[in-house]
Each structure stands twice: as C-alpha cells, then as structure tokens.
C-alpha cells in the first residue's frame, strides 16, 4: 500500500490507526480536512488527531468505514454496536459527519 493512499488517525490516547484514504473519506469531516487545499496541516501529513475520541471508539469508527465501503459494494451485513459504546460512538459520528 502506497503511503499517499493511506491516512493516519490518532486517538486521544495517541494510538495510531493507519487506514485507506478511501475508507477515511467516508467521514465528511475527514474528507473536508484531506481535500481542502492548504487549510489543514492534515492535508500535507496525511495525519489527523482526534483529542476527543478515545482509542476504542476510533477503532470502531475505522471498522465502520470499511463496513460502509463493503455495504456500498453490495455486501449488506449488520454492523454490530456494543451497547456500552453507543452514546460515545454517536457523539463521534456526529462530529465526523458519518
């Protein structure tokens, strides 16, 4: 995988998730960060830090990105959400326009 095809998402605790850019762009917020020229440092480094999103939530979000891509390609499975994560995940989803 070429580096320019990936992005690094960094959680509040500093945990790094390297995922496909295509997957990350499922989030409207991340898409804006990566595509608006010059305005975000993220565009250059391919790195986005989320000081308000915990590792466990960010992992779930990355899973959703990939699930969403599969769904769009016709693989319509259930996306499991653990009840104890729902509210925190919801706030992150709201922020990420996902």
């Amino acid at each position: 995988m070429r580096k320019e095809d990936t992005v690094k998402l960094i959680s509040a605790e500093g945990f790094e998730f390297v995922i496909d850019k295509e997957a990350a762009m499922v989030s409207q917020t991340i898409r804006n960060m990566l595509t608006s020229p010059g305005s975000f440092a993220e565009t250059e480094h391919g790195e986005v830090t989320f000081p308000e999103i915990s590792t466990v939530i960010l992992e779930k979000i990355c899973q959703y990105f990939y699930w969403s891509l599969q769904y769009a390609r016709g693989k319509e499975t259930e996306f499991p959400i653990e009840p104890e994560l729902t509210l925190e995940l919801m706030m992150a989803a709201n922020y990420l326009h996902t």
Partner: peptide, 19 residues
C-alpha cells in the same frame, strides 16, 4: 433503499432505540 448505506449516526440511533 437498497444499496444506500446507513450512516453511523443512524445506526447508533437505532441501537439506542433498541436498548
């Protein structure tokens, strides 16, 4: 419709309703 992916927000809201 078929093929349109539910947003994570929607999924979370449905989940909240269930629980």
């Amino acid at each position: 419709g078929k093929g349109q992916c539910p947003s994570l927000m929607e999924l979370c809201i449905y989940k909240t309703r269930e629980d």
